[in-house]
């Protein structure tokens, strides 16, 4: 196979022998099957925000250090900024838009409001997706577990105490028969 991209040794520039074709990507996004044309270097975060207009998922650091872009892949949380979209062929993505809608709030969204678990709100979609991931993953039993397992989501307003309260409440509600 002749590579489509080569390095010009004198200029150090990347040379594409031919334009790199977009790839066809089949993805289920918030329950809806999508067939998309995606360039290989597009991250899931940029695909969601720029192509699918799902701007609930936020771009904070874009380097996996803040958690604002947290979404669920097949029910497990990841940082969308560090995931190339083309690697997710056939998988299921859930964003904040898929968890709840105006008038139909997800229990975590209702608990965040009830507990005053945000101030500026920028980290909140990531916090809520992360909390849903925490519940799905099933390794948290108490407040200390919740705090540790929510540590991948930074809140610069410092609403951590109330975030832990909100997540713990929904986690414990889920335990009841």
């Amino acid at each position: 196979m002749n590579p489509a991209v080569t390095l010009d040794r004198t200029s150090g520039r990347r040379v594409a022998a031919e334009p790199i074709a977009s790839l066809t990507l089949r993805l289920t996004v918030n329950g809806e099957e999508r067939v998309l044309q995606v360039e290989p270097w597009t991250t899931l975060l940029d695909l969601l925000r720029d192509k699918l207009d799902l701007t609930g998922t936020k771009k904070g650091c874009d380097h996996g250090q803040c958690g604002a872009c947290t979404v669920l892949i097949d029910g497990r949380r990841i940082n969308a900024c560090l995931k190339l979209a083309v690697t997710l062929e056939g998988q299921e993505v859930t964003t904040i838009e898929g968890l709840g809608q105006p008038g139909n709030l997800h229990p975590l969204q209702a608990a965040f409001i009830e507990h005053d678990a945000f101030q500026c709100g920028y980290c909140t979609p990531g916090q809520i997706c992360s909390a849903q991931g925490l519940i799905n993953e099933g390794h948290a039993r108490n407040r200390a577990d919740v705090r540790e397992q929510m540590s991948g989501n930074i809140c610069r307003c410092g609403a951590y105490t109330n975030i832990a309260d909100a997540v713990l409440e929904v986690l414990e509600q889920g335990k009841q028969p």
Binding site: G67, T70, R77, I78, N79, S130, G133, L134, G152, N153
Partner: peptide, 9 residues
């Protein structure tokens, strides 16, 4: 190490 999100990926 890392965070739950990073360890999941």
């Amino acid at each position: 190490g890392a965070s739950p999100q990073l360890r999941n990926a």
